[in-house]
């Protein structure tokens, strides 16, 4: 479902945010650290710092619904993946280098739009949890006439 080109975009180190909702349909959200496409593109693992994931965990465990938006500040490319949670677990030490690499890529993006790295020194990225989603739909969200179009 998520093709190789889109997977490369998701995993290159861009802005990632995950949204959920509670039983009263009030939205919740958190910034994510990294993402990984698995199972031939049918699943997406989103890594969220533990302190942020605590806001989402109840929602995910009760209804499983999630939306993940990716944005690259450099050229405004944006894409949204919707899915349903498969499982949630602590991120492992083996995964930490991958998270750090993607996070570094995101900070590089921020630098390109004028936000120095010193702004992010107190942003928390570890420990993290891994939220595995079964992908249901994908939407193009880059500003332009195709914004909002379902692409998968």
């Amino acid at each position: 479902m998520i093709g190789p080109e889109l997977a490369a975009f998701f995993e290159q180190g861009v802005g990632i945010h995950i949204g959920t909702r509670n039983e009263r349909l009030h939205p919740n959200g958190a910034r994510a650290i990294a993402a990984k496409v698995e199972s031939g593109g049918t699943q997406l693992v989103v890594y969220v710092s533990e302190v942020a994931a605590s806001r989402l965990q109840v929602d995910l465990e009760s209804n499983g619904q999630a939306a993940v938006v990716f944005g690259r500040p450099e050229d405004e490319r944006s894409c949204q993946v919707k899915g349903v949670m498969v499982d949630i677990r602590p991120a492992t030490d083996d995964e930490q280098p991958m998270l750090e690499r993607q996070w570094d890529g995101f900070l590089n993006q921020l630098e390109k739009i004028g936000i120095p790295r010193v702004s992010s020194v107190n942003w928390t990225t570890w420990p993290a949890v891994a939220v595995r989603l079964k992908v249901t739909t994908i939407f193009e969200q880059t500003p332009g006439p195709q914004a909002g179009a379902q692409i998968a």
């Binding site: 949204g19 009030h26 619904q65």
Partner: peptide, 20 residues
């Protein structure tokens, strides 16, 4: 408007949405 903001919403049938 220097940095993008994130908007989270939810449809009436319970599908969340995240956008810049």
């Amino acid at each position: 408007g220097l940095l993008p903001s994130q908007l989270f919403t939810c449809s009436s049938d319970g599908i969340p949405n995240a956008a810049y």
